[in-house]
Design a protein around this nucleic acid. Structure first.
Length: 394
DNA sequence: TCTGGGGTCCTAGGACCC
DNA sequence: TCTGGGGTCCTAGGACCC
């Protein structure tokens, strides 16, 4: 009655967006490529920097102007999400040749459960190498792979030898691995928790290990304390085993300059509502909860949400609620830097039986919106929007 | 010339009920 | 003449991730 040995791969594409640009523009090869905003773009940040750009200290989430200061000779380009999605799909398909259980985590990474595939593909290490090779051969891109007996450790392993790396954490050595890992590399410890740990004199995973569960929970809260206690001991952290109960859709925009007038905010809000609502229709989702988010000039961020009694079926309703929430929350004296809107607690079946109560008028609008959606599907280049959104364009 | 956009999960505090 | 103690639901804010 031996337990079966689980094997997980975590595959992570190297500097994905920047690598795709180098692939599609051979003249960029070997050069610092910075995907995100262009140097002139106000309030933009770096999405991905190629390894050649990272040498200069450029990294993701860095303001573009700062990246430009560090690396003025860099090749700055806007992202081309469609192209990245296309390649991502191709690569995920390769992964699926090696396992029926591929869990895509984002556009550029996935877990591949290769438990029990030895008879088909050989030892796990060989499978990993074969996948790397096939991705390289079929797309020209490199992928770093981590191999371990749990998803959590496979995830940490894939980060060890980037780019084009492979790293294996043998079963039974997980705790030793954790105890040599720098604190800031621990998945789940971000800037704030790291600061907080340092503040309490904890600078290594070994330091965490030496604290009792009680102490950790007292200092960092029940949950974070338990997580810290478990993670350095390589105990189950459940980081990737929870399946999410709810789903949400949102859109937000940062204005080039702070906005002070309500009319401009409402126009932006309508545009955002439009985008979110059609994404909801596209996935046949239903939601009753509207959220509005405001970031003021000083970066303080507030949000407000409201749950309605029935599903939001047309954009007008969505926008009216969002507008009301904006009015309720918005402090008119302050400049607005960012405005966002979202639909939360999305379900994919109609649970609300009271549906039929909505009137003919709404049925018509709903039909129009579905028609627009199908039109947009056929002709992705045309965008049909409310007249107001065109007002300021000429 | 500070700090994107799209997500998920956790938590503290208040409302409300027994 | 001084106010317990659960439980649950909701909201807003925050941490973290890619």
């Amino acid at each position: 009655m031996s337990e079966i040995q689980h094997w997980y791969l975590h595959a992570d594409l190297d500097a994905f967006f920047a690598s795709v640009e180098q692939l599609d523009h051979p003249e960029y090869k070997g050069k610092p490529v910075i995907v995100g905003g262009l140097p002139g773009d106000k309030r933009s940040v770096v999405s991905t920097a190629s390894y050649e750009a990272r040498v200069f200290g450029v990294h993701s989430a860095m303001p573009t102007y700062q990246a430009y200061k560090l690396c003025p000779q860099g090749i700055f380009v806007h992202g081309r999400m469609q192209r990245y999605a296309e390649l991502s799909y191709q690569i995920m398909s390769i992964f699926k040749e090696y396992s029926p259980d591929v869990e895509q985590m984002s556009i550029d990474e996935a877990f591949i459960d290769i438990t029990g595939t030895e008879k088909l593909f050989g030892p796990p290490e060989e499978t990993a190498m074969r996948i790397k090779q096939q991705v390289k051969q079929m797309t020209g891109l490199t992928v770093s792979i981590g191999l371990a007996a749990t998803k959590y450790h496979a995830k940490l392993a894939s980060d060890m030898k980037k780019p084009d790396g492979f790293y294996f954490i043998p079963p039974g050595t997980e705790q030793a691995f954790m105890l040599q890992l720098p604190l800031k590399k621990v998945f789940g410890i971000g800037t704030k928790t790291l600061e907080n740990l340092n503040y309490h004199g904890i600078h290594t995973t070994r330091d965490v290990y030496e604290k009792s569960l009680d102490t950790l929970q007292f200092l960092f809260g029940r949950n974070t304390g338990q997580f810290l206690y478990n993670t350095v001991r390589a105990l189950e952290t459940e980081t990737f085993s929870r399946e999410s109960k709810t789903h949400s859709l949102s859109a937000e925009t940062t204005f080039p300059c702070d906005v002070y007038d309500v009319y401009s905010l409402e126009t932006a809000l309508l545009d955002l509502c439009h985008g979110v609502f059609f994404r909801l229709l596209r996935e046949n989702g239903f939601s009753k909860t509207v959220m509005v988010k405001i970031r003021y000039e000083d970066f303080t961020t507030v949000s407000i949400q409201e749950k309605t009694s029935s599903n939001i079926l047309i954009i007008d309703t969505f926008y009216e609620i969002a507008k009301r929430l904006l009015e309720k929350k918005y402090d008119v004296k302050r400049g607005v830097r960012l405005l966002g809107v979202g639909l939360e607690n999305i379900l994919h079946e109609e649970k609300d039986v009271q549906q039929e109560l909505f009137e003919d008028e709404n049925k018509k609008k709903q039909a129009v919106e579905k028609a627009i959606l199908s039109l947009e599907k056929k002709h992705p280049d045309i965008k049909i929007k409310k007249a107001r959104l065109f007002e300021k364009q000429k």
